[in-house]
Amino acid sequence: MLDASAVRVRGLHKAFGHTRAVAGLDLDIPRGAFYGIAGPNGAGKTTALRMMIGALQPDAGEVEVDGVAVWPDPREAKGRLGFVADNPALFDRLSGREMLEYAGLLRRMDPAEITRRADELLRILAMTDDENRMIADYSLGMTKRIGLAVALLHSPRVLILDEPFGSLDPVNTQVMEEMLHRYRAGGGTVVFSSHVMDVVERLCDRVVVIAGGAVRVEGTVPEVRGSAPSLQQAFVDLVGRRAIDDGELSWLSSS
């Protein structure tokens, strides 16, 4: 029977020395969802994502992507997902087009299909003029766009993104959002982490807030927002406010 979850996480643990980055994380991300993972800095979002994509072995727990166990052998699961990091890890001395072709050949795609999809992705992402430039010469926004193209090239079932909208200008943010919506309309599942709550509120059906490596709250956006005026406010109420006293930094206005 096909599992209803695109991503299923059970009892995920990871510690680095004495620091517990992820402590018993449980998640069920439905197929076709636009799913946001929110949390303060150091909450364990990126660590959790890296364990989901098979780039970091958990100390304990299970992860399934599209019904396939990621651990102990993540190779099959990796074929079903695409990943875009905050600062995408790519071969920076290849050009954007070469990188796409490299990714396609590594995934044993047909060269003609690689060319067709690469042409389309480069055009939609407005990268055609820069496709022959080395990635080392790209801005972070351009690198992120190529990273997205590389992640989408093999049409994965689940797309996982870590802070996808940082360093993108408004136009490219809109293009990326449209691409993600189209991807989801085609049956894909989008999972992304962010601490920009406006973006999470605007795009996601469901959201989980992680703090201290564990789930603090999970549900639809209205459920998580509750009675707060915005998701941002609900988030701050949940993870704790850090206030500046009236007397502090008074010297800033003294000059």
Binding site: K78, F91, D92
Partner: peptide
């Protein structure tokens, strides 16, 4: 390979 080494692993390359 630099950061590309991580790409190879994440992509599930043989």
């Amino acid at each position: 390979d630099g950061a590309g080494a991580e790409f190879s692993v994440i992509s599930g390359a043989p």
